[in-house]
Nucleic acid binder design. Structure first.
Lengths: 188, 188
DNA sequence: TCAAACTTTCAGAAATTACTGAAAATTGAG
DNA sequence: CTCAATTTTCAGTAATTTCTGAAAGTTTGA
């Protein structure tokens, strides 16, 4: 496997970023390599390209599978497993967001809910609960919204994106409109 | 410093989550403690509460300062520095998003721009550049949109949030409206 | 059922990251 | 300016995470 300097710098960048993220260097690099590869790669090809041990690649792929970020396929007459990333970048983004939500956001919300249920034993606890509740509301707000977006198709999304800061104007407009029509656009 | 079990579990959770994030356990715990604390704390109080060495707290606070997540204040007649987190959770969220963008997104975009400028030397490179360009567009789209949201005030934001999945409907509605009025709501 | 082809597991080694205590630097009151 | 209070730095150690090679496990075709 010959990797060109172009691909190499991309792969290296993902390695560095990966470790700044929760993901480790190896995993980041494997992902980057698969992302730009023209065709699916098997574990040995990956190991050779990145100069990792075969077992390290196996671990990395397992991790990527747990994130649902790689596709696995077979070729007739070849028993090896070939890996690739999904083509649609938006789909990749959605998967990533979903997975992070499950791993990072949900446990936090659960913990906060638990803490908020406790009877406060002091002024300090009352204050702590108040703060936790503020955090809870924000996180819920953001994730709800995020999941709404997640269910949009690419075209709608791109239109919404292009709309950009006008979202605010649109919002104000629909609100004043709802007063006229009497139909509330607000969920409350 | 006596920390109640309620606060302790909150702090512990942030420690664990912190390491799953890019931030280390110590930093996560210090932040959590400050977040729920009724009043600003000095470094010694933090060190005692969390049983960290004084120097570790110093490092952690420095890191939090670099993320602009803590406020520093002084009390008359007391030379020690007292730390707290901003009150407004939305402001905290914005700061965090801004900082992550600067540290993680910008460098990636720069790298991608660079790679995309290169003259492709092969079919494989052409394909790699195509993929990078797809990634670039997605990241730009999401960050542009994010920064639009960042500039909204809390009230508008909360209305938008409550609107939720109806955003899609609103969007479709405004689009059909623009055909009637001839005024394009689209930036393109 | 066997054996070759391939993948996974795992204990220990290597590398990285976090933490501490001691010492240096800074700060501000007198 | 001096000195005590406070904070920061940093070299060394501890803890954690990553990576490897060897061995065990699995799959499939003959």
């Amino acid at each position: 496997m010959n990797t060109t300097p172009l691909v190499q710098s991309f792969v290296a960048h993902f390695g560095e970023m990966g470790s700044r993220w929760g993901i480790n260097r190896t995993v980041g690099q494997i992902y980057a390599l698969l992302f730009v590869s023209e065709k699916p790669l098997n574990a040995d090809e990956i190991a050779e390209s990145l100069s990792f041990s075969r077992s390290n690649v196996s671990m990395g792929l397992k991790e990527l599978e747990s994130w649902r970020l790689v596709k696995l396929q077979h070729y007739p007459g070849d028993r090896r497993e070939y890996f690739s990333t999904p083509d649609d970048v938006w789909a990749i983004f959605k998967t990533l967001a979903e997975e992070r939500k499950k791993r990072e956001v949900e446990p936090t919300l659960t913990m906060l809910r638990g803490a908020m249920m406790e009877k406060p034993a002091s002024d300090a606890e009352r204050h702590a609960q108040q703060r936790m509740s503020e955090m809870y509301q924000l996180v819920e707000l953001v994730t709800t919204w995020f999941s709404d977006i997640q269910h949009m198709d690419v075209e709608t999304l791109q239109r919404l994106m292009k709309l950009g800061s006008q979202v605010q104007k649109v919002l104000q407009f629909t609100q004043s409109l709802s007063k006229l029509t009497g139909r509330d656009t607000d969920r409350e």
